[in-house]
Simulated assay, not measured.
Amino acid sequence: MNTTTSPTDQAVELPWERFWQLIDLIGGEPAVAFCATFDDGCERLAEALAAGPVEEIVGFGERLAEALHRLDRREYGTQQAANPDDPDDAPAPLSTDGFLYARAAVVASGRAAYERVLADPAAFARYSFRSGERLLHPHEEAYESATGEEWDRLTRYDYESCSNQEGWRKN
């Protein structure tokens, strides 16, 4: 996450409906292994964002951080990563990066998948071995393309793994 501009600078409230429309440009969930289709979808997203107003780029970055932050919870982060391509491979704990990338895979999969996982933490398991890492950058690329400057700002929500203190609080 970038750190020099405060979250209140250029704060833009992108409607959730618009956020999910933009996510739909990706074209579906990331695969377990590298997936050129997912990468191409993220490129389409970056291009669409760059073609719009800068406020929408900033608003997308804010919504993405918020969506990832909402999934940063104990009930998701303590799950085991399981490789669906190798059932003999023993499940293993998620690393902090793996947990972030799995949460990004949920978001990249669209609104229905995201809402399903929020409603049922067990649904997160199918994303535990997927990497949506590429989703973390289209708004940054679009911002640089549109302004000629690097994305250099904090978002209201920290999406790094284990940053949601409320979500990791023991009951």
Rank of each mutant, 00 (worst) to 15 (best):
M1G: 08
M1T: 06
N2K: 10
T4C: 01
T5I: 07
T5M: 08
S6M: 07
P7S: 08
P7L: 03
T8H: 10
Q10M: 07
Q10D: 10
Q10T: 05
A11K: 14
V12L: 05
V12Q: 12
V12C: 08
E13N: 12
P15D: 01
W16L: 10
F19P: 00
W20H: 07
L22P: 03
D24G: 13
D24F: 04
L25D: 09
I26T: 02
G27E: 04
E29Y: 11
P30Q: 10
A31V: 03
V32R: 09
V32S: 10
F34K: 14
C35L: 09
C35H: 15
A36Q: 15
A36H: 13
A36E: 15
A36D: 15
T37W: 01
T37G: 14
F38T: 00
C42V: 05
E43G: 11
L45E: 09
A46F: 06
A46D: 06
E47T: 14
L49D: 07
A50V: 07
A50C: 12
A51Q: 15
V54G: 06
E55L: 06
E56N: 06
I57Y: 09
V58N: 04
G59F: 03
G59H: 05
F60Q: 11
G61D: 08
G61S: 09
G61H: 05
E62V: 06
E62T: 09
E62N: 13
E62H: 10
E62W: 06
E62I: 03
E62G: 11
E62F: 03
R63F: 02
A65Q: 08
E66R: 12
A67P: 02
L68V: 03
L68A: 10
H69G: 00
R70W: 02
D72C: 01
D72S: 05
E75C: 11
E75N: 12
T78K: 11
T78N: 14
Q80A: 14
A81S: 14
A81D: 02
A81E: 02
A82N: 00
A82V: 00
P84N: 09
D86W: 06
D88T: 13
D88G: 12
A90T: 11
P91Y: 02
P91T: 04
A92K: 14
A92E: 14
A92D: 09
S95K: 02
T96W: 07
F99Y: 12
F99T: 03
F99S: 02
F99G: 02
L100W: 07
L100T: 09
Y101T: 03
Y101S: 08
A102T: 01
R103P: 02
A104C: 13
V106E: 08
V106P: 06
A108P: 03
S109Y: 00
S109E: 04
S109H: 01
R111A: 05
A112I: 14
R116Q: 15
L118D: 01
L118G: 04
D120A: 12
D120S: 15
P121F: 02
F124I: 01
R126Q: 03
Y127E: 00
Y127F: 15
R130E: 00
G132N: 04
E133C: 08
L135A: 01
L136E: 10
L136H: 06
H137W: 15
P138I: 02
P138D: 10
H139L: 08
Y143K: 00
S145D: 12
A146G: 05
T147D: 13
E150P: 13
W151T: 02
L154S: 14
R156M: 09
E160K: 09
C162T: 09
Q165F: 10
Q165D: 12
W168C: 04
R169G: 15
